[in-house]
């Protein structure tokens, strides 16, 4: 406990907490959409792409990796969505190809060109999140804050449309709205979320951060709005708890947060069962 208080006296630790909570908030918002649409697949693929892009950025010794990773991931999101629309099976194959390819090439590049003495440590931290988000530099922190706020704003403004295309895309198109444009928007936002979340939990654990709060909320609530609100609150609480726990126990942040999410999921399942009985 003393340790916690000591740590929280550093502004950087407080910033990290804020950033972590904001990231968790964004990722939970699109959880339901991702779980229910084919996008969950795209999300997974994109996180690998982000890993590859980060590897390239580190090989090129870019001073700020995120400024490179973000556009690349967004671009891939757009491409994948296009591919997915043309033909279903081809789209899925394209995603698999791109994601596995990015993973392999990324690792290869890091191996070939890395100047770091601790290569496996570097790879591990990109895959599973840094040991601590305390290592984020100042630009990253600000970029995270701005992007998270944009994501939350976009979600609120397009809430009704997101609901509509997630529930029944055909109806949206039948009443003359452009489902394609909304899908594109969702894919782009998902890409942004993935790049953001990579800072917190690393590229392999992103799906957990996105999906667990939504799945937990769906055990208890029946309307889209209630599920969304519950997922957001749950995700924020879990992220805050996870970050604080990781400071005290000195465990890696990403996996601690995900572990707390999993525990919450278990709890919600239990409550759901009890409620039914």
């Amino acid at each position: 406990m003393d340790k916690l208080i000591l740590y929280l006296q550093y502004p950087i630790a407080r910033y990290a907490l804020i950033v972590g909570v904001l990231i968790a908030l964004c990722s939970s918002l699109f959880g339901v959409t991702l779980v229910l649409k084919r996008f969950s697949f795209i999300g997974d693929g994109l996180s690998h792409v982000a890993f590859g892009a980060l590897a390239v950025a580190s090989v090129l010794r870019l001073s700020n990796g995120m400024l490179f990773v973000l556009p690349v991931t967004v671009l891939c999101a757009v491409l994948l969505l296009r591919a997915g629309q043309n033909a279903k099976i081809k789209g899925d194959a394209a995603i698999a190809m791109l994601s596995v390819g990015a993973l392999a090439i990324g690792y290869l590049l890091m191996n070939l060109f890395s100047t770091s003495s601790n290569l496996s440590g570097d790879v591990c931290s990109t895959l599973f999140g840094s040991y601590s988000i305390l290592t984020l530099d100042k630009t990253d922190v600000w970029l995270c804050v701005v992007l998270s706020l944009l994501v939350v704003a976009a979600f609120i403004l397009f809430y009704n449309r997101i609901f509509a295309v997630t529930f029944d895309e055909d109806f949206t198109r039948a009443v003359g709205l452009s489902a394609g444009a909304y899908n594109l928007m969702i894919a782009v936002i998902v890409a942004v979320i993935i790049v953001l979340a990579m800072n917190l939990v690393g590229s392999l654990l992103i799906s957990a951060l996105v999906i667990f709060p939504a799945l937990s909320a769906m055990r208890l609530f029946k309307s889209f709005r209630a599920v969304t609100v519950c997922a957001a609150v749950l995700s924020v609480v879990c992220a805050a708890a996870g970050i604080l726990i990781s400071i005290v126990t000195e465990t890696p942040v990403g996996s601690t947060v995900v572990a707390v999410d999993i525990a919450a999921f278990g709890l919600f399942c239990l409550i759901g069962k009890l409620k039914k009985a």
């Binding site: 339901v32 779980v35 229910l36 009704n160 449309r161 609901f163 509509a164 997630t166 529930f167 029944d168 055909d170 109806f171 949206t172 039948a174 009443v175 003359g176 709205l177 909320a217 769906m218 609530f221 029946k222 309307s223 889209f224 709005r225 209630a226 599920v227």
Partner: peptide
């Protein structure tokens, strides 16, 4: 133009209340 599909490919788990769905007709 309004449309009533023969089958909606609504995912089995979709959490949505009746009101939310009817309201989405106004989109």
């Amino acid at each position: 133009i309004g449309y009533l599909p023969q089958q909606t490919r609504v995912q089995r788990d979709f959490p949505a209340s009746v009101r939310e769905i009817v309201l989405s007709g106004c989109q």
